[in-house]
Amino acid sequence: MDWAAWTLSLKLAAATTLLLLPLAVLIARPLLTMRPAGRLVAEGLVALPLVLPPTVLGFYLLVTFGQNAVLGELYRGLTGRSLVFTFDGLLLASLVFNLPFAVQPVQRALEAIPREVREAAWCCGLTRWQTLWKIELPLAWPGLLTAIVLTFAHTLGEFGVVLMIGGNIPAETRTVSIAIYDHVQAFEDRAAGILSAMLVAFSFAAIVLIQFLTHRIGRKEQ
């Protein structure tokens, strides 16, 4: 069993989820009050990773954060590390690639809160931040949960972007999906089969967990 690949994948999924969730809230909340034209563009940008081939996304990330790119150099100057073929780069790519999986459920959940509830909070003297923290986020909890599970499960299965940005360095950028690819290339069908089955089982469990918790929260609120 390739435990290093599992550890790396789980670490990447956890870090992506943790960083992306607050980011998703910060992106989704202003979308609610944006003018229709701006909203259309913003929603399009957020959804882009859904339709782009991972290789295209990976290519642009390489161009933007590569050795000779301004942002890549800036990052290296600040941290002393490179963004290409490292865990940091993998995480950044993962954040971009998972954006729609986190933003969209949060956005839908925030949209479902009646306007009167939000305005009543303001009329009660709550600031916009207090309203977000005390009223909107507790009510958008099923959406947040969906975002967490989808991001986590999707990160585990990521392949194209990981390969483009991270390459295949054991314990640094070799995730489970890359390991499966390696095993298949080396005709190690049994090892590839075990890893694939585990990934399927994990993803299925994640989806079931989402549905279970969403129903439970829904029932509790009634």
Binding site: P114, E116, V117, E119, A120, A121, W122, C123, C124, G125, L126, T127, K134, I135, P138, L139, E221
Partner: peptide, 30 residues
């Protein structure tokens, strides 16, 4: 709106569904 000190009863009340009656009222007592 927060600085105007108004009491507003909305048409569908706009109560906070995840809070109890007491917490709903307490929310306005900053």
């Amino acid at each position: 709106v927060q600085a105007r000190r108004i009491g507003f009863v909305f048409q569908n009340y706009g109560l906070f569904p995840h809070l109890s009656a007491l917490e709903n009222v307490a929310a306005a007592l900053g």
